[in-house]
Amino acid sequence: MILIGERINAGFKDIGAAIREKNPTAVEEWAKLQAERGADYLDVNIGAASRDPEDMAWLVRTAAAVVPTKISVDSTKIEAVQAGLEALDGRGCLINSTTADPGKLEKLIPLAVKHDASLLGLAMDERGSPQNVERRVENAAMVFMAAIEGGLPPERLFLDPILMPIKFMQEQTLNVLDAIEQFTHLSDPAPHISVGLSNVASKATERGRINRTFLVMAMARGLDAVICDVMDDELIAAIATAELMLNQEIYSDSYERAFQARRGLRRRTT
């Protein structure tokens, strides 16, 4: 499972303030904490508040300065993405994200190719969020084809089926699961399939439980990446256990410890 740590996001008050004041402390702390918990990528998002690409460059530089972890440059604005990529030091990175909108694809795919970046494509287009399986697959296929034609191989493509709050759009959860399975048939090996996990539990009371249960169900259908709270020990334990169920890892009694060791983590003392 590819873990993308969600915490460096201006939507969180401490990060929002850090960006406004250009105070690196909170950003550095979250970069280190998430890396220590085994994040494969740190998602870095300047939020809706900022329109300045230089904010993204600062945030990327600040996070990258303290850990070697790959960076997910998260913005809907192409200028901000570009500034984020240019602030990096050649380490692996992910552009988060494009939609199936041809106008975005024709800019972001060449940008990903140029920077050796991976690209996350949302299964939505200018018509808005998909309400059924078919529209999700159609949009994903659109992104997939454009990526292949643009020289971006499936292993550098992440597809996101657009997860929606179960509290408000209960029927969409099953649609997302069905779409995940269909995405796996796009190619062999399949592109990565990722969701922004916290969406599913938005405004719900049992958020942790909803996140965990959805994630395990989605892994069974083919999900192999997730933007999530990597500090959630129960969530991480559920992932480690699901990897066993899917026979992706060899069972051992201390399999959670093996999960940490695989990610180069020292044993937690707490």
């Binding site: 060899i250 069972y251 051992s252 009694d253 201390s254 410890r257 093996a258 060791a261 044993r267």
Partner: peptide
């Protein structure tokens, strides 16, 4: 036993022996 093969390595690592 593949599961024990893995387990004994983890135990050794946990007492600080380098894999």
């Amino acid at each position: 036993d593949i599961n024990l093969a893995k387990q004994v390595n983890i135990l050794a690592m946990d007492v600080g022996f380098p894999p």
